[in-house]
């Protein structure tokens, strides 16, 4: 088997354009889906019938259908009811809506993981609502949020590849163009596999660093503290 490096060198601009679009779509969609996730998580937590119903319906609909099918529906079915979108727009919207459902559950889990006593203690000290969220609740949520949202982010970056089916000019689509013209699937798919891996490795490394810096209190070894136990005789109490 021979590997045509010359072909890769010549096609390189195509791959660069592709990954630029992948990064562009990822940045916008993931940011938007995070905010959708926060909103839906808060709706889910209100315990009022209508917001909860909306939140749960959205989450169940998105989580229980394949992303590929959601993309096909956005591009081929929605125009039948009058909603027409360009490929790129459809791609960004689909990924944001898809990611939002998963972010919502991650965020809801992180919120529920913080004991109520934390908010009560902060309130009892006279801190305002926003100070409590910023200084007490949110920093503690990071311990739960960083691993789960990193996982989700890496997943969503990889899912941009699915958008190639509706001709969004991201990396996989560009590879398919090059493969179609040069009949070189080995070179094409190998290169983009490496590029996706490289991109996600950078994201994963950044997330690890962030986790290291924000979760110091979780690494502290409780066993290293000195504990002195004093036996108290019944007569002295």
């Amino acid at each position: 088997m021979s590997f045509d490096f010359q072909l890769i060198y010549e096609s390189w601009p195509l791959f660069v354009k592709g990954i630029a679009v992948t990064i562009f779509i990822s940045l916008i969609s993931i940011s938007v889906s995070f905010f959708i996730g926060v909103a839906v998580a808060l709706m889910r937590l209100t315990e009022k019938r209508i917001p909860v119903l909306i939140a749960v319906s959205y989450i169940e609909l998105i989580r229980n259908t394949p992303f590929l099918i959601q993309v096909y529906i956005a591009f081929f079915v929605l125009p039948a009811v009058g909603i027409r979108m360009e490929a790129m727009t459809a791609g960004i919207v689909c990924l944001a809506v898809y990611g939002g459902a998963y972010f919502a559950e991650n965020i809801r889990g992180a919120i529920l993981a913080i004991p109520r006593g934390q908010e009560e203690a902060a309130k009892a000290l006279g801190l305002s609502y926003w100070k409590i969220q910023r200084k007490v609740i949110f920093p503690q949520m990071l311990g739960y949020l960083i691993p789960t949202t990193t996982n989700l982010t890496l997943s969503l970056i990889k899912d941009t590849a699915i958008l190639s089916v509706i001709t969004v000019p991201e990396l996989t689509y560009m590879a398919q163009v090059m493969i179609g013209e040069a009949f070189a699937p080995v070179e094409g798919f190998t290169v983009i596999a490496l590029m996706y891996w490289g991109l996600n490795s950078i994201v994963a490394a950044a997330a690890r660093k962030w986790e290291y810096h924000s979760c110091r209190h979780l690494r502290v070894n409780a066993d290293s503290s000195e504990k002195v136990v004093v036996a108290v005789l019944p007569e002295t109490r």
Binding site: Q118, A121, A122, A124, L125, G126, Q140
Partner: peptide, 28 residues
């Protein structure tokens, strides 16, 4: 402003785990 004048100690302590002892005391 009312809560700042009334201190409260809880059964479950409710210290802020992500802050040191000193930071717990200086936060408020």
């Amino acid at each position: 402003s009312v809560r700042q004048e009334v201190g409260m100690v809880f059964q479950q302590f409710n210290l802020f785990p992500h802050l040191t002892v000193l930071e717990n005391c200086t936060l408020a």
